[in-house]
């Protein structure tokens, strides 16, 4: 289960909308029980509407800040601009951390859709998102 506030949801969706036409992305800092404490937006280093990569400086900052604040990097969010909020085969292949929460935002339709997944040994399972 992923827990996050409406402010966190707004920060995630706003980051993804601002990144258009590219995919947007960022990292989630929080606690091992899946509670998000902070959303760190990142530029999409891939600058693409098809792929994303968290900026390497933001990635280092996120780990440093997590260490300083007694938190963990617990997941990542990114948008799909023209498809549903479900991990693509590449997302699955490049999802190395079974402890992470993989949040997908679809901007395909007029209303943004956000879902969260665990990806363990290549198996995708959707999880509850609680606000």
């Amino acid at each position: 289960m992923l827990s996050l506030s409406i402010d966190h949801v707004n920060a995630i969706v706003a980051t993804c909308i601002r990144a258009l036409p590219d995919e947007g992305c960022g990292l989630l800092l929080g606690t091992p029980d899946g509670s998000v404490v902070e959303v760190m937006a990142s530029p999409n280093a891939a600058r693409s509407s098809r792929v994303y990569e968290v900026d390497s400086r933001v990635l280092l900052q996120a780990y440093r800040r997590a260490d300083d604040e007694g938190l963990l990097v617990i997941g990542v969010f990114h948008s799909h601009t023209h498809s549903e909020a479900y991990p693509s085969p590449t997302d699955v292949h490049q999802a190395p951390d079974p402890l992470w929460h993989y949040v997908l935002v679809s901007l395909r339709d007029a209303t943004a859709v956000m879902r969260s997944y665990r990806i363990i040994d290549g198996i995708v399972s959707e999880e509850e998102v609680r606000r």
Binding site: R50, Y52, E53, P87, T90, Q94
Partner: peptide, 10 residues
């Protein structure tokens, strides 16, 4: 050392 965080329809 940090694994890159990336994905998408390659």
């Amino acid at each position: 050392l940090l694994p890159a965080v990336a994905g998408g329809f390659l």
